[in-house]
């Protein structure tokens, strides 16, 4: 009975990594040092919110309550600052998108409502992606900036999702550092490898290859992967569910 009463909330370690990765994406979206500071303020607020649960579980309810208030306040402050920060309108829109996205990612790993967690994570990552593309549209960011932004967005989504599913299996009170670290290192390794390949590719000038041909090649790879994935599903292979 007590066993079933265990809270199946997102695991701490994965949640912290997701929030840190989200803060990094927001930092990538910031175009001025002041905007980077706003991302930092929000990151501190998000970490305070996450830490409040841990502190309250150890019996420090007052400290936990203060952490909740301070964390929420800092996130709201960063949202407000992103609207009034000096700079061009489009830059502020990009930053606002990033700050909002980080708030959604934070909400996804907070123990609010289990069924909302994946939705919040999806909204947050969607906002990050849109902000990155908008940034590429309004300015000419470096390849490294975009690669870092997209890579960290995927890592943010992955770690938040991992924290949610791990929490569903073992709850919040189990120690999850080692398995989270292992999963994170794997994901980071793939991102670094692919990012290095992409960064190397961006330096190669191939005037004879039109971008349409590259797009077709990439589409072919995607379709191939998709078919391989579909091959795993029961309905395509004719197996019973």
């Amino acid at each position: 009975m007590g066993e079933s009463a265990l809270a199946k909330q997102p695991a701490y370690a994965g949640s912290v990594l997701a929030v840190v990765a989200a803060a990094c994406v927001t930092g990538v979206l910031a175009s001025q040092p002041l905007q980077v500071s706003i991302a930092g303020i929000e990151a501190v607020g998000a970490l305070l919110l996450l830490g409040s649960g841990l502190v309250r579980r150890r019996g420090h309810h007052v400290v936990g309550g203060v952490s909740v208030v301070a964390g929420s306040g800092l996130i709201c402050l960063s949202l407000g600052l992103s609207l009034v920060v000096p700079g061009r309108l489009f830059e502020r829109i990009v930053l606002l998108g990033g700050v909002l996205a980080m708030a959604f990612v934070t909400l996804s790993v907070l123990p609010l409502k289990q069924s909302w967690a994946r939705g919040f994570n999806g909204i947050g990552v969607g906002l990050f992606s849109c902000s990155l593309v908008f940034l590429a549209w309004i300015s000419t960011p470096s390849s490294l900036q975009i690669l870092l932004g997209v890579g960290l967005t995927i890592v943010t989504w992955d770690m938040a999702r991992y924290a949610i599913t791990l929490g569903e299996d073992v709850g919040r009170s189990a120690r999850t550092y080692s398995v989270t670290g292992m999963h994170f290192s794997g994901s980071l390794g793939v991102g670094l490898t692919a990012g290095s390949v992409a960064a190397a590719g961006s330096r190669i000038t191939l005037p004879a290859v039109p971008i349409a041909a590259l797009a077709l090649f990439l589409s072919a790879v995607l379709i191939l992967l998709f078919v391989v994935f579909l091959g795993d599903t029961a309905w395509l292979s004719g197996r019973e569910e």
Binding site: L132, V133, A136, W137, P141, S142, S143, Q145, I146, L147, G149, V150, G151, I154, D158, G186, S187, V190, G191, T193, A194, G195, V197, A198, G201, S202, I211, L214, A215, L218, V221, L222, L225, F226, F229
Partner: peptide, 20 residues
């Protein structure tokens, strides 16, 4: 659409994670 090679190349990350 944006004729941005940086964004286009970032799709390599998506492909890599899809095949992971």
């Amino acid at each position: 659409y944006l004729r941005s090679p940086a964004v286009f190349l970032a799709s390599i990350l998506g492909v890599a994670y899809a095949g992971y």
